[in-house]
Design a protein around this nucleic acid. Structure first.
Lengths: 228, 228
DNA sequence: GGCAAGTATTCTGTATGCAGCATAATTTTA
DNA sequence: TAAAATTATGCTGCATACAGAATACTTGCC
């Protein structure tokens, strides 16, 4: 499998296959962003005609995207009434964070065992970059890097399914997390936890990593609490 | 919130709101079954016109269902080519079972802590019924109860999100699991593990339950191995 | 006979049309 | 004047129509 005749593989390496994008995909991505950014607010009803016109797309691909969003848990569909952006209760939040904690712990454990030094170094780089953004108080960039680090740790496990599940859940609470980290003291707490996470990972100290992930998730719940 | 005027609540208790079912939902369910039963075989291309005619439905709701199935990971969509029933590699299988193990362990732990005695008794009842089906060698009923028990334990955690994620992953490997348990000795092994699971749960012995779930998942991998 | 090019056909992706339900607006009635 | 009934409007659910891509088929050529 590794190379063989070569030319075709090499060509695909150099010029990765351009994948056709359907409107469905395009719309899906855009709507996810709109929900996370708050352009589509929780509880808001989604008018197919309106959004369709806004995106310059007919209702067909839009409806398909909405169905996918529903399957991802970002919107709720009420037959004959329409779709509304899902509103998460504090209970939902607790449930999501419980599962997310478990998934990240699994990811962390596997990363400690399997990840290459290079992979871990790359995560450290993300972390350093994040700290820089923290220093200059660029909250948006900080936040994106923060999410990227969590994803990267899970990805370092090498388990695609884990990455997928983690991504789905992370998307659900992305917005709440962003709003939740507003106060300076909360922000500082999160940063400190991250520092410990990276150190544990570099030492491949599974127990310490498990503990700090637990702490990080539990305190995320507290930080986000009053946003609900 | 608990009763108030009463009449309406009582009425809804007696005659639960009939929820509208869209064709999308109906088709989705049917196609899930078709995939699990093998009517739609892994790798097979899904012809929209054909399946639509077969189900007596136009392409529109069918396409929506396919998009949802894709989001659930049961089919794969190749733009301009169509959807094919997803084929799982042994690596996929390993990844799925790893995550499933983690989720079931989380569910089991929470069930030990939170579930009522009645809930656990109900699971025991499922188990006894399953053993009966094992005795008479009714493999299909046995299998359904087997799945139901796993779901019930996770449901006993009280965490809806966990139930949802678990359900999604369970669906992906349902078919392989069914085929995988064919040999008598494999079957017997799975039964023994289940017995231990229930006993641990009744004793609310978290450590024992964690261990047997680990064992059960790991041996599931072996049992299914040669089906791939 | 086998291969290549060109043609035909099938199927997907998207738009649009129509019927029915839900809700808002309006009128009617006590 | 307020509540109920009725009409009117808007939006969803589904079917169908059409364009373009992908595949299957046919024909010609070596």
């Amino acid at each position: 499998m590794t190379s063989g005749a070569g030319t075709l593989d090499e060509a695909q390496e150099a010029y990765p296959r351009i994948q056709r994008r359907t409107l469905h995909d395009e719309v899906l991505e855009r709507m996810r962003d709109m929900i996370i950014e708050g352009t589509l607010a929780p509880g808001q009803r989604i008018n197919e005609g309106l959004i369709g016109a806004q995106l310059g797309v007919s209702r067909t691909p839009l409806r398909e995207a909405i169905k996918t969003l529903a399957s991802e848990g970002l919107v709720e569909i009420q037959p004959a009434k329409g779709a509304i952006v899902r509103k998460f209760s504090s209970t939902d939040m607790r449930h999501i964070l419980e599962v997310l904690k478990s998934l990240e712990q699994l990811g962390g454990r596997m990363a400690c065992e399997n990840a290459s030094d290079e992979t871990i170094a790359a995560i450290r780089a993300l972390h350093d970059e994040m700290m820089e953004q923290y220093r200059v108080r660029n909250r948006l960039e900080y936040f994106k890097l923060n999410q990227a680090i969590h994803s990267a740790i899970v990805a370092a496990s090498g388990n695609d399914v884990l990455v997928e599940m983690h991504g789905t859940l992370q998307a659900r609470i992305k917005r709440l997390r962003f709003i939740g980290n507003e106060g300076p003291e909360k922000w500082a707490g999160a940063v400190a936890e991250h520092e410990t996470m990276i150190e544990s990972l570099e030492k491949r100290d599974v127990d310490a990593l498990m503990e700090v992930i637990r702490l990080h998730m539990d305190s995320t719940r507290l930080r986000v609490w009053d946003v609900l």
